[in-house]
Design a binder for these strands. Structure first.
Length: 482
RNA sequence: GCACCGUUCGUCUAGAGGUUAGGACACCGCUCUUUCACAGCGGUAACACGGGUUCGAGUCCCGUACGGUGUACCA
């Protein structure tokens, strides 16, 4: 049987970076096995629905390269792929469970449930639905149950967890897991508004959609026994489970926005490359067992296996992500980078943004920054002639430095286009000018950089000045001297 | 509180009984150099603790500690 996996987000907002990782692992697993990766929207909680969230999440995923074989946006033979469009189904399956004695009606109000939890808390016992004392099918009796149903009293359907059972399941990441029935709550399957909870909907859909492997985050591990019980109650074969380690904040709590950006949308906006982000996130909780760290999506597909997924949560290291983004920046095709950068340069109305010129600037500066867009500010003196202000009295001090001014004039008065086109000639010219002021080369070059770029750091001065050209160099020197 | 999961350098991790415990990021130093980077070289730095099992445990078992997740008519 071929592999069928699903990524099942709920449309409550932007796509979380952890969700991207989960989606990615599902995708990689499917592609590794020549299987199918499905997108299913879990919108059973209408109160949390956010308009546009589905489209945003699909777009974030698409940007990252995670695409689906089936889903609400591409169709498929197992649809609909949005749970709100499948509601009658869950009711039907819920009733089957009631009929077979695996689930039951309960009529408790929210207040009654709160009071129950309060009592339990006061008594120091675990909060859990008390089937023996609350208002349900068993305590009120069959006749009363039928009467309440007939008068349409608000009710839910709960899973009847066998109190003495030991629920066992195998997890591909964690091994065998055992939990006792007495620890498991009689989970609500169908809410009083008739909508299913996640627990029912996900089991029904995974079965109907013939999902073979459920790959999801570790936070689902504690509720997996409920799902196993549901598969048993329906007489269905459960899928293989694999619970992924969590992405963590620096304090090791579940990754949240309190410690930085967590939405894929944010990473995209900050200028991370999708392939860099995917490469990085793939390594949060998985590694190939070799020393190779740079992987294309295709390489990840062929290398990825569940056996190599780690058990422990991974702190999300923003610094390493930045490093990796820089690695991609240095490796990428310059033409591609040029067209990606051009719009931002146009927006800033820089005058010198001929594509070939921009390509040269990118090649020159990309080793010094982690993001492509850093180049727009880092190289402002290359794209335009309006230089940034220099802090303090550095320029005035230089103007008062006779030795330097003498050297600078010598350079200005003798520089030719040929000098700027040939490294040896450039060096000879600089040495000659420095000597004219009685300076060592280094004592001349650094101030020269400041005068022409208004920066004290940057790429090699020779290629920098070559790009700026003789005319613009002289203009800047004259402006400095006047 | 209870249940479950986890624990190798600061961080991501390799390691499937015998290793000088390896790599990457970060950090520090050196080299290169007109600066900052890049690159190269080098360095600091880890098996949570206690018991077992074994000739021999980072690796297997038990316990403890610590951490995380869950404990909703959320997903």
């Amino acid at each position: 049987m071929s592999v069928r996996v699903r990524f099942a987000p709920s449309p409550t907002g932007y796509l979380h970076i952890g969700s991207l990782r989960t989606a990615l692992y599902n995708y990689l697993f499917a592609k590794h096995h020549g299987g199918v990766c499905i997108l299913r929207i879990e919108d059973t909680d209408r109160t949390r629905f956010v308009e546009g969230a589905i489209e945003e999440q699909i777009e974030s995923l698409r940007w990252a390269g995670v695409v689906f074989d089936e889903g609400p946006h591409v169709g498929g033979n197992y649809g609909p792929y949005v749970q709100s469009e499948r509601f009658p189904l869950y009711r039907e399956y819920g009733m089957k469970l009631v009929a077979s004695g695996h689930a039951y009606y309960a009529f408790d109000t929210a207040e009654e449930l709160d009071a129950m939890r309060q009592r339990q808390q006061n008594a120091g016992i675990a909060p859990k639905y008390d089937r023996a004392t609350m208002r349900n099918q068993y305590t009120v009796g069959e006749a009363e149950t039928q009467r309440l149903l007939a008068e349409q009293a608000p009710h839910v359907i709960r899973l009847k967890v066998p109190l003495t059972a030991e629920i066992r399941f195998h997890d591909e990441v964690r091994g065998d897991v055992v939990m006792h029935g007495r620890e498991i709550d009689d989970q609500i399957l169908l809410k009083s508004d008739g909508f299913p909870t996640y627990h029912l909907a996900n089991v029904v859909d995974d079965h109907l959609m013939e999902i073979t492997h459920v790959i999801r985050a570790e936070e689902w591990l504690p509720s997996t026994p409920k799902h196993v019980l549901l598969y048993e109650a329906f007489g269905w074969k459960p899928p293989v489970f694999a619970h992924l380690p969590l992405l963590l904040n620096p304090d090791r709590s579940k990754m949240s926005k309190r410690h930085g950006d967590v939405m894929v949308h944010d990473f995209r906006g900050k200028g991370y490359f999708p392939d860099a982000l995917v490469n990085f996130v793939a390594f949060c909780g998985w590694n190939p067992g070799t020393e190779q760290e740079m992987f294309t999506l295709e390489e990840l597909c062929s290398a990825f296996t569940l056996e190599r997924v780690a058990k422990a949560g991974a702190v999300f290291d923003y610094k390493k992500l930045d490093w990796m983004n820089g690695e991609y920046l240095r490796k990428k095709d310059v033409a591609e980078l040029t067209s990606a950068l051009l719009p931002a340069l146009q927006e800033r109305r820089y005058p010198y943004i001929e594509p070939d010129y921009v390509s040269s600037v990118i090649s020159l500066l990309r080793e010094r920054v982690a993001f492509l867009h850093d180049i727009t500010e880092f190289g402002d003196y290359l794209f335009g002639d309006v230089l940034q202000d220099v802090e303090g009295s550095a320029l005035a001090d230089l103007r008062a430095d006779d030795a330097f001014v003498t050297a600078l004039r010598a350079w200005r008065d003798t520089v030719t286009d040929e000098d700027l086109a040939d490294h040896d000639r450039f060096k000879g010219l600089a040495e000659g000018a420095a000597a004219a002021g009685g300076l060592k080369l280094g004592k001349f070059m650094k101030p020269l950089r400041l005068v022409i770029t208004h920066r004290d750091v940057g790429a090699d001065l020779f290629p920098t000045l070559k790009l700026i050209g003789k005319r613009r160099c002289i203009e800047r020197i004259d402006s400095f001297l006047s």
